[in-house]
């Protein structure tokens, strides 16, 4: 089966990279997407996909994308929380796949919070 062969190739490629990318540690940046009913209905799944694509295409190590339930303000979903070690948590609201590109390149890569999507500015 073609797909199993592809999976084996992915495995081999990742095994070759082992050591450069360990499991989640305290030193890692965590990006959390709210995936309760409110989040899903507001478009959290495309946002999650966009985050995974950005992390994969930019080959960001030390960044973990995870999911949570309701982040508390259903009308502001999709919500994304960014935890950078040693920094205060940043909550982005009404996030779109386009916003994700900006958040990843400006905040995760360059360390500059994207003010236009931060909760206090909405």
């Amino acid at each position: 089966m073609k797909s199993i062969e592809e999976l084996k190739a992915i495995k081999a490629k990742m095994q070759a990279e082992i050591g450069t990318r360990d499991s989640l540690t305290d030193a890692d940046t965590r990006i959390v997407v709210g995936m309760a009913t409110c989040g899903i209905a507001a478009g959290a799944r495309p946002v999650l996909n966009a985050l995974l694509e950005e992390v994969q295409s930019k080959r960001l190590s030390g960044v973990k994308v995870t999911q949570a339930g309701c982040l508390g303000m259903c009308r502001l979903e999709p919500m994304v929380e960014v935890y950078v070690p040693g920094k205060e948590k940043v909550t982005y609201v009404k996030v779109t796949p386009e916003a994700v590109k900006k958040i990843v390149s400006e905040h995760i890569v360059n360390g500059n919070v994207v003010a236009e999507y931060v909760i206090k500015n909405i």
């Binding site: 999976l7 992915i10 495995k11 490629k13 990742m14 095994q15 082992i18 499991s23 995974l52 694509e53 992390v55 994969q56 994308v65």
Partner: peptide, 11 residues
């Protein structure tokens, strides 16, 4: 060696 929730595997 490789986790099922690795970004490449999920993709």
């Amino acid at each position: 060696d490789v986790a099922i929730d690795a970004v490449e595997v999920i993709d």
